[in-house]
């Protein structure tokens, strides 16, 4: 077990967030069983007031998760000096089998937290809180994710063996190796690029459809998530080599460094926000038929869709520009 302030902080956060969610879910269970919006009883008032506490707890938990995702990557980056063969975060995540799952769980918790908060926001717009039982049942589903994240992360840090020689982005994302990551990097850049632009176009179409027909919000959300995943793959497969100007350097983390003008932030921040917003459209739009929610669905869902599409467009513009302005030429090799 390696003990550094950043690791302590990450463990502290995941413990605290788990406890916060357990507390919130305790209240949630009470609400699910006892809620009666038509009652004027004092108990109902107490429950109603607890919903404020639950939302507050979840908002902070979500913020903490977001910062901890960043810190996790930074920490992996900074620990790369402590492992033989590790040159960046990739190497540290490869120290044991728990590294990547931790990262993915953090991302999943982030997205489910965002989706839940959107649902919560929508429900608070309806004077009869029509989604109350649904949203608190869903909240109970997030708890195991958060606890899993805590456990997996703890294992990741606990089983860190500084003597292990790890494979880093050079070998992990090289086309010869057999890992999943290599599979991602080894995808023909031509195919990755095709998928990247085609899926982007499809998402744009589904967005336009949604905005004009006021239906298909869930399809839009699915497209958004798909584009998010494909964009990630595209970044590993062909965008990052162009940024590094090195045809075999596929790494999703090194682009966050100053040496590459922090290019990663310009891709990841809009990409994450856009995906969250698209997810929000999917969460909000199915409720247009509930009378007390109809007004805010009609008002908010198109807004989210617009914003999400704008940010996705930004990701596409950014990556296209990065590819075009790079001095790496792969004409004849990749296409």
């Amino acid at each position: 077990m390696l003990l550094s302030p950043a690791i302590l902080a990450l463990i502290l956060v995941s413990v605290t967030v788990s406890l916060m969610l357990l507390l919130a879910s305790g209240f949630a269970i009470q609400i699910i069983t006892l809620w009666d919006i038509n009652s004027g009883s004092e108990q109902q008032l107490v429950l109603e007031r607890r919903t404020y506490l639950i939302s507050t707890l979840l908002t902070w938990a979500f913020v903490a998760e977001l910062v901890s995702l960043l810190l996790f990557v930074y920490n992996a980056e900074s620990m790369s000096g402590q492992f033989v063969g590790a040159m960046c975060a990739t190497g540290v995540l490869n120290v044991n089998v728990w590294g990547w799952p931790t990262l993915f769980l953090k991302m999943i918790v982030f997205f489910s937290g965002a989706a839940w908060l959107t649902l919560n926001y929508l429900d608070n717009q309806g004077y009869d809180y029509p989604l109350v039982k649904l949203k608190y049942s869903l909240l109970l589903l997030i708890v195991p994710l958060v606890i899993a994240e805590f456990v997996v992360q703890l294992l990741h840090f606990q089983e860190m063996e500084p003597d292990v020689i790890v494979s880093c982005c050079g070998s992990l994302f090289s086309s010869e190796s057999e890992s999943v990551a290599a599979g991602v990097a080894g995808i023909q850049p031509r195919i990755a690029m095709l998928a990247f632009y085609v899926s982007g176009l499809a998402m744009l179409l589904s967005g336009v459809w949604f905005l004009r027909r006021k239906s298909g919000g869930i399809l839009f959300a699915v497209m958004g998530v798909a584009v998010f995943v494909i964009s990630m793959i595209a970044i590993v497969s062909f965008v990052s080599p162009y940024i590094y100007e090195h045809p075999h350097h596929h790494c999703p983390f090194c682009i966050l460094k100053s040496g590459h003008d922090f290019a990663g932030y310009f891709l990841y921040i809009p990409l994450f926000v856009a995906a969250v917003l698209a997810l929000g459209v999917g969460v909000i739009s199915p409720w247009a038929k509930v009378p007390s929610l109809a007004a805010s669905v009609v008002k908010d869902a198109p807004r989210l869709a617009w914003l999400s599409m704008a940010l996705f467009a930004m990701v596409y513009a950014m990556s296209t520009w990065m590819v075009l302005s790079s001095s790496l030429t792969m004409q004849g090799v990749w296409w």
Binding site: I37, N38, G40, S41, L45, E48, Y127, D128, Y129
Partner: peptide, 20 residues
């Protein structure tokens, strides 16, 4: 809020509304 009964303000029934 009343424990029971209805209060209507103009057209709107306000007795069952949440505090928000």
């Amino acid at each position: 809020r009343p424990t029971s009964g209805r209060i209507t303000l103009g057209e709107q029934n306000i007795s069952g509304l949440p505090e928000r």
